Simulated scan of single mutants.
Amino acid sequence: MKRNHRSLKMLFSPSQRTTGPARSSNRRRHTRQLPGTPHFTHESPVVPATTQADVTATMQATPSATPSHAGASGDNHHFQVTGPIHDQIFKHSKELVVGITLTKDVMALSMADKKRIIKSIIRKATPKIPGLQGIPHWENQTKDLATIWRAVIVMCTAVTTLTREGVIMAYRLFPPQGSPISPETFRMDRVRHLIRNNTFMHEYSFNADGTLTIHSKFKNHFILHLVTRMVWNMHFQLDILLVSPRRQLHFAMGLAGAITKCVLAEQAHLILTAPKSSPDTDAFTFEMICSGMDDLTDEEKVDLDGWKDHMVICGTSQQCKNELSDFDLDSNSDIA
């Protein structure tokens, strides 16, 4: 019986038949259980069969990456994308970047900041497919980044056009019929009152003698109109777009206000002109408006929060699938 047992053991243990005594086999088995030497491998991503032929993915470690970190974080890898996956990421990025208008990054001026923002957007737009973790890269990426950011410029340009179309009536820049004051003088004088201390953002009224009274701060109905047109005419559903409504509307009001002040400044000239807006000036106005809302008293902030909630309620009824104004947010044509 013992002899037969030994024969069966040798039959299923090739290492014992070829490499020596049993202790040698134990040592080899122990060696094989040790972790392998860390090294980088080049793998193709696991994608659906319909797109595998169109996607080229090469996982490469950045020069600063180390073996211990490479396996733990996809941020140390780049992957090359082409075909439908590239088109999907590119299109989704152009949609997502419009949401920047609801953040303080909307006034980013430097190319470095814009690239940082867009690369973050691209990562969010990348399909959650095993093998695609990391930083997407494709040919002509610099041109693509500029095209993606252009969606933000188109949005701001569209809001500027809406403001120009309505600012005259919204802020009553026409003198009353029979007024002895010339239209130019009346308009210029009223604009000076409105843009001083950003009064145009508030709910106000002019007295008979021309003095201005503020009734409540940051509750101007024209700003509400611009914000609802800007936010709820986007391609997203309201519940998806507004993750933190009060804070996001905070920045949307800042953007609408910066654009409104720029348009009102145009009206402050004797001869009407439409000069190109200055990014530096607009950014300063945006920051001043946002700071003004931050500096309100606790009671005033509660009142403003109620106004923002009112915006959400009104905005829900305004949701539609139409493009903002007459602008095509997906168009690649140049903006004058």
Rank of each mutant, 00 (worst) to 15 (best):
I313G: 01
P38V: 05
L224M: 04
D326F: 11
Q60I: 14
E287C: 07
L272P: 06
S44Q: 07
Q80Y: 14
P63N: 00
E184Q: 12
D334S: 15
P175H: 11
P176D: 13
E203S: 05
D105W: 14
T199K: 06
R150F: 05
K321Y: 09
P279V: 03
L173G: 10
K143W: 03
N322W: 03
S15K: 14
P136G: 01
T147D: 06
D113F: 06
D298S: 15
G134Q: 01
D309G: 15
A125G: 03
S93R: 10
S25K: 03
T41L: 03
Q177F: 05
G178L: 06
H77T: 12
G36W: 00
G134Y: 02
D328A: 11
G166S: 06
P279G: 01
R229Q: 05
S7H: 07
H77P: 08
L173M: 10
K119P: 02
C262D: 11
Q88H: 12
S179C: 13
D239F: 06
F327D: 01
A283V: 04
I289V: 14
R229S: 06
H269W: 10
P275V: 07
C320H: 05
A283H: 10
K128L: 12
R196A: 11
T213H: 13
T157Y: 07
P175F: 14
S15N: 13
S317Q: 10
R3V: 12
Q16L: 14
S278H: 05
L255I: 03
W149Y: 09
E184G: 04
H30S: 11
G166A: 11
L145V: 15
V46Y: 08
V231H: 02
I240K: 08
L255C: 00
T37L: 12
F286P: 12
A49C: 05
M253Y: 13
Q267L: 03
R229N: 07
T62F: 11
N4G: 14
F251M: 03
A258H: 02
T297N: 12
H30P: 01
P279I: 04
D75K: 15
D295M: 15
R150Y: 08
G166K: 09
H39I: 01
H86Y: 09
A258R: 00
G178N: 08
T62A: 11
G292D: 10
D330W: 09
I335A: 02
A158Y: 07
T62G: 09
E266H: 11
S44R: 06
D328Q: 04
L304Q: 13
Y204K: 09
G178V: 08
V152N: 03
Y171M: 03
E203H: 09
P84G: 05
F236R: 00
G71L: 12
K276L: 09
M253F: 12
R32E: 11
G74L: 11
N197D: 15
M230P: 08
I335V: 10
G36L: 01
R246N: 01
S179F: 07
V98M: 14
I313L: 15
C320K: 02
D295A: 10
M111R: 09
V55R: 02
S291W: 09
F12W: 08
P35F: 01
N332R: 10
A158S: 14
Q141K: 00
S73Y: 02
G83Y: 12
A258T: 02
R3H: 10
S64E: 05
M311Y: 06
R32W: 03
I117D: 06
G292E: 07
N197F: 10
R32K: 13
T285I: 14
T160S: 07
D282I: 14
K217H: 14
Q16R: 10
L296H: 14
M1H: 08
K91G: 04
H250G: 09
